[in-house]
Design a protein around this nucleic acid. Structure first.
Lengths: 190, 190
DNA sequence: GACGATACGGACTGGCGACTCCGCTTGTCC
DNA sequence: GGACAAGCGGAGTCGCCAGTCCGTATCGTC
């Protein structure tokens, strides 16, 4: 389908592209998506022209960053899930998504956007995660570790919400752990 | 302190000011705080000049809207709390804050900002709410209805998070109820 | 009903940020 | 090592939006 593989990038171009993605991830996460494009270019040590050649639009850059994030999450979740006991896999997966989603709030909305609008490429990688989550949820419910009446939409909403909670809470390890306890206890059948 | 009461506004001015606040609340909530000022003026049936006379800055307008929201929440919480049993008061208060915080996400951050930055007037009304929440929490904990190790910061973070969850979930009554069940169960001592 | 004070509308300005364009540099291939 | 394509930098353009200014309309008072 997406088979059209363009000729490979020149070495420097590939390097710049990768660097831009890294820097953009960092900057968007740290300072929010409203950060001027030029700042990202400067931080990556390239001109704006270069940035816009690689990503024709600021939105395209944002999208590329989000796709990569989602793919990372999906990959790690897969690792984690492989051969683990269902209940444990579910709760570990929950934590993992939260940890990976950290950063300036708008990013948690990548996940949100996942189920709602989003362009083709986003749709694809978010679909993968949704499928994984659905599976984790079903497994945990079959094992009696999670309330059976919860659906995937509620789980995703909760993930977004807990992400926001952590954002608000800051880095205090113990407080974060207390939040997880509250939510995880609440998720279990009473 | 704040005693300086200026001469009363002319009738039309007072009307316009009130209308601007109402419209701004609606628009910011529905379409986000990035909505151009001019749009709000038009929706209120006044010129931009008028808007900026009443609120010298877009930020000032936003602040005024938030203060009003916070005051509403504080007032209703007070009503609710009066003479209620502590556990019930706490959980009802929790629901109330969530319901009142509804609207395009950035608004939930009014509460967030509450504890963090915010100008003088915001600080004042948010302080009131924080105090109320602290009291509700302490009461519920004394009554054994909420885990004793939770602090005010965690509670506030949870409120923000559950607000985001609801935002993400949409208007589905039953799903929302399921979220409340999860969180409330989780809040109780195990 | 007339007059001063108050408030209004909306054209205008200034600054900012996304995106373009093109002369110059660098990688690649023979 | 030279030729040419691929890529680069960054000054410049364009549109958008917050906030100003002032001639005009409205309010309130006598």
């Amino acid at each position: 389908m997406t088979g059209a593989q363009e000729r490979p990038l020149r070495a420097d171009a590939a390097r710049n592209r990768a660097r831009l993605l890294d820097v953009a991830t960092e900057v968007f996460t740290t300072r929010g998506v409203a950060t001027p494009t030029e700042e990202i270019a400067r931080a990556a040590g390239v001109g704006v022209g270069t940035l816009f050649r690689h990503f024709p639009t600021k939105e395209a850059l944002l999208e590329a960053v989000m796709v990569r994030r989602l793919e990372t999450i999906a990959a790690r979740t897969a690792e984690l899930t492989a051969g683990a006991e269902p209940a444990e896999a579910f709760f570990d997966g929950f934590r993992l998504v939260i940890d990976q989603s950290a950063g300036k709030d708008e990013f948690t909305q990548a996940l949100a956007a996942a189920g709602v609008d989003a362009h083709a490429s986003l749709r694809e990688s978010s679909g993968a995660i949704r499928a994984q989550l659905a599976e984790l949820l079903a497994g945990a419910q079959r094992a009696g570790a999670v309330r059976p009446e919860l659906g995937l939409p509620e789980l995703i909403a909760l993930l977004v919400g807990v992400g926001a909670t952590m954002e608000q809470l800051g880095p205090d390890r113990e407080a974060r752990e207390r939040i997880f306890e509250v939510v995880f206890d609440g998720l279990r059948p009473r």
